[in-house]
Amino acid sequence: MPLADPALGGGIRVRKLSHDYQRDEQRIEALSDVNLDIPVGEFVALVGTSGCGKTTLLDILSGLLESLQGEVLLAGEPPSAGRPDTARMFARDALMPWRTAAQNIDFALATRVQDTDQRAQRIQQLLDAVGLEEFADAYPGQLSQGMRQRVALARTFSLQSKFVMLDEPFGAVDAMTKISLQDQLVELWEQTPSTTVVLVTHDLGEAVALSDRVIVMSPRPGRIVADVPIDLPRPRSVKALQSVSEFHKLVAQLWDELGA
């Protein structure tokens, strides 16, 4: 564990975190005694079977859910919804159908940047970065699922937040589109070295391809059962990784850790 990392003061620190919720008269233990440190600039994936509490953990880190027991700190402060240094991306694109691609990005960006020209400029840069420069004025209904996800990705990174929380961002797209979206995510992240990313996914290949480190969680109640460093070189190309044997070895190792 990189507990002594001097950068950790600005990173994510989770101590003795437990969480449960009520469902139909029953108390369900979602998380139990989770301890985790993520240094600044690290890309971490949370994996586990469905219902293992990984999204609960992400919701707590995003401030959308209040933790019941334990300590959670992002850059020394407890998480809260609307913190300007935190950005959250959802499983579905959450684009508003009555706004164009550019206006959808602006919906988020306007909460951080006042100057309209500056916003317009950054929106154009981001659309360029995700290969949608010609679709600024297209409505979501006119875009494919992959393109919509790209807009959502651009919206998330437009905030230039220190902490980015991604919840199964590419769960809804086909395998080919997925790889190109993953490459775009890696590119966006590699441009901002001080951004810490927490990615929730059930796709082990995705977890290995994108992350510096994969955290494996057990079925309910969720606890951390393995912490696997991914020492693949950067900058990475997800497409190129598909033919690297080390990549497949790591995926196989994760399958073992999951006990599948």
């Binding site: 995003s62 401030g63 959308l64 919804a81 609307g82 913190r83 300007p84 935190t86 950005a87 959250r88 959802f90 579905r92 959450a94 508003m96 009555w98 919906f107 988020a108 909460t111």
Partner: peptide, 23 residues
């Protein structure tokens, strides 16, 4: 999802009404 996004961005209630609920 739109309401959750607005919450994660810390968007105030009246803007949620104007920009999400009405449209």
């Amino acid at each position: 999802d739109h309401l959750l996004l607005a919450r994660s961005l810390g968007i105030p209630r009246w803007r949620v009404f104007n920009q999400i609920i009405i449209p």
